[in-house]
Structures are given as C-alpha cells and as structure tokens.
Write a protein that binds this DNA or RNA. Structure first.
Lengths: 226, 226
DNA sequence: CCTTGCTTTATTGTATACAATTAAACGGAG
DNA sequence: CTCCGTTTAATTGTATACAATAAAGCAAGG
C-alpha cells in the first residue's frame, strides 16, 4: 500500500483525527491535492473511502466536509458493532479451528505482556487487540461481516478509548478476551456472543466516561472559555 | 443521478445480474469504458462501488472480477440483513412518528393493491416494498445502520425472490408488514424486531427454494446437460 | 522437459486539461 | 431594503495521456 491514493487517505484521515481539521470544515479536492502532494485523482478515491468510513460527508451537490461526530453517533456505532461483532463471535465459536485458537491465545498473551508492566505499552496493546479481533472475524468466515465491521470500527475511537484506560480497564479487557477464548474452546457460540457484546459495550462506556466534560466534538480543538 | 459514473455503475451491475457477465469474468476498465461509452475514470468509480456491494472482487494486484455468489454467500447476506433490519425495526418502534406511521400504512395498502389482482404487478410490489423498508430505516434514525443495510440489500436478489413468489407468498409478505405496523403502533420494539427478522428469513427461504435445481450460480447462463 | 530469468504486453495508477455544474457575487426592479 | 435574476468564480465530473506495475510469453540453461 504505497500508492498515492493510500497515502492521501492516511493523510486526510490523520488531519481529521488529530484535530487539524474540525467538524464541518470543507474538503476541497485541489487544496487537499496540494497538501498531500498528489493530484486530484487519488484524493477523490481517498474521499470516497473516508465517506464510507463516515469520517467525511458529502452534500447533495457533491461537496465534501469533515463529518460531525457526536457522542450519539459514536454510541450508534458501538451498538451496531456490539451486535455485529457479537454475531461474529458466535460464528467463530461454531467454526473455530485449532490453528486460529492457538493464534488467539498467543495474541492475548502478547496483550498481557503489553499491559502488565508499570508503564503499559498502549500501542502494543492496540496492535494485538486489533489482531485478536481480526482473528475472530477470520474464524467467523463471513466476508460480508468483515466488510461491514471494518467500515464500522473507527480505529481512532478505539485509540482514544484505550488511551484513557486505567490499569484495571486493561486487565478487564484481557480477562474478557480470555473468557472469549474459553468460549471458543468449548465451541459455545451463545457464550462467545454474550462476552463479545459485553466487551464492546464496556469499551463504549469507557469512551463515554472519558468523553464526559469534553464539551467539544471529537477532533475539535479546545478554544478556552469565551 | 445522470452522471456518467452512475450510468456506468448501473450498466455494469446490469450486465452482471442479467448473466451477460458470469462469475469470475475479468472486468477490464478500458473494455468496460468502451461498452459503457464513457472514459475509464467513471468506470473506476463504478467498480469501486460494486466492490463495496460485493458484486465485484479485486485481486491483490487490483484486477477486478465478477464476484462469485454462492447460495452460502446469499445466506450469509440474508442472515446479516435479518439481524440488522430486525434491529432497525426495534429502533423504529421506539422512535416511530405518526407521520411515518401514516406513510407505512399507505405503503402497505399500495402493496395490497399491487398483489391482490389476478395478475400481480410484481414491479409495483417491489417498489412499494422497498419504500416500506426505507421508511422503517428512516424511523430508526441511524445513518450508520442505513449505510450498512444499503450495502447489504442486493436488490437483484430481492427481485429474483419476488419473481418466484406465488399469490400466497405475496399475501404473507403483506400480512407480515401489517403485523409490523401493529408493533409500531404499540411501540413494541421486541415484537417489531421479531417480525422483521422472521420476514427476512422467510424471504431467504423463498429465494433458496426457488434456487433449488439451479445447479449454476446466480447470473450464470444455463448451458444444458453435458 | 522443466525451470529460471528476461522481454514484451496488458492493465491499472496518476497527473492534467477541459467540461459541466454549483455556489457566490453582483445589480437592478419592486 | 429586500428579493430575484444574471453573471462570475469556484468546485467537481470526465476524458485522455503517460507512468508504474503486474501478467504472459519466450528463450536459454540445466
């Protein structure tokens, strides 16, 4: 993925998530092309993808703007994710292979390594967490489900959530993964589904709690009291 | 929507669904551009959208092919649709407005008109059916959910399903819609969810039954016994 | 005869020019 | 002063040329 359209995608996404661009800001193709150092063609592809990701909205006249991300929107996304990823866990339990099971255990051990030190390695946690959830999707074996979820999992939200975790929250996440693996070992789809749904919902509340007090929308810069 | 990219999208989609293109056929941009009478740029956008729709797959080297649509794939899609649209029905029941309720009743009446004659008007049925489901999504009020479902509802599959309906199946569909409206009137989310999930699953089995005996994949032309 | 590496060909990726469309600026009439 | 239509500027849509890359064909060596 060293193509210009991918770099443009990452660049624009980064600008949105870092707060360099705020909700509602217009995204003009030519301006972005200059900033990203590419032509408009890859910019258009990137914007199309970001629109699918719901980080960008388009008016009826095809102008693009940075999407608004209210807490309600995030709640909406998390609820859908809980449902779909719960379903994925159920399917995964029914279709689990020994190979993937081993990989899952390895993955959760790596998560443990990352968080069980005085100074938790949040990035390592995120990497292995992502890998673990990807393994569940792989075991579920539904391309459509994978597609839907990747469009739904806003990695930035996960990032923000994890960076507000306290040691106990990390431990909780690891413990839930362990339960999930137990459910997989026993091929207990209903259990796996319940654990996963709870796992996602817990993450949402962690996000919502961390979000409390922030009066501004996600990605918006602080402006101080008027 | 009179843009070249939309026309290209419809044209390619049509070619795939009509069987003019078979599963696994390569889709070369230039060839499609000539067939559609447009340049490669809108063709690329159309292919990207068709890929989201899962009518087209791309190899790691970015070549596009007509996707394979096995019965398992369709079952997968219907299951996800049952879950998501069931969820939508639950939300819709909780957030239903009188205005939408009136529109729903009108819509289901129109469906009744279309099917309760000697020669059912299948196209009118499909139009009003689509409208009814769109109204449910509107009442549910989740942009994300709407996005996910539109990517999931392969209208062609619905089309094929409806065109194999017998009078009793039409009546059944209409009756389930009526029940759904009752659930909405009573703001009974759980009931609405159950009805909708059953409604979609019934549609799947109608599709599967009609599909029996077709040894070829969807969209593939009959070739006769070897 | 099979393999391996190179050459050729086909296909996709990107840049850019131009056309079409839409929003903004402006000006005149009421 | 406001409203409406016209003109102007800005922005997106499309076509096309060229660059980059991957597949296919081919030839030489094992």
């Amino acid at each position: 993925m060293t193509k210009a359209s991918d770099r443009a995608y990452e660049a624009i996404r980064g600008m949105i998530l870092s707060g360099e661009l705020s909700s509602g800001d217009p995204l003009r193709e030519e301006a972005l092309a200059q900033v990203c150092g590419v032509s408009r063609t890859p910019i258009r592809e990137a914007l199309k993808q970001l629109e699918v990701d719901m980080l960008v909205t388009r008016t009826e006249s095809q102008r693009s703007y940075v999407a608004d991300w209210s807490l309600d929107d995030v709640a909406d996304a998390f609820e859908l994710r809980a449902m779909l990823e719960g379903h994925a866990a159920k399917l995964a339990a029914e279709r689990m292979t020994d190979e993937i099971l081993i990989a899952l255990r390895y993955c959760n051990n790596a998560i443990y390594e990352a968080i069980s030190k005085p100074d938790p390695d949040v990035n390592a946690f995120l990497d292995h967490n992502r890998e673990l959830h990807a393994l569940v999707l792989k075991a579920a074996g539904s391309r459509r489900l994978t597609n839907l979820l990747t469009a739904l999992i806003e990695q930035p939200v996960v990032w923000r959530t994890a960076h507000h975790y306290d040691p106990k929250a990390f431990e909780c996440s690891h413990s839930e993964h362990a339960d999930l693996i137990s459910a997989f070992e026993r091929r207990d789809g209903a259990w796996a589904e319940a654990i996963m749904a709870g796992h996602i919902r817990r993450a949402f509340h962690a996000y919502a709690d961390a979000h409390k007090g922030m009066t501004k929308g996600v990605g918006e810069t602080e402006r101080g009291a008027a």
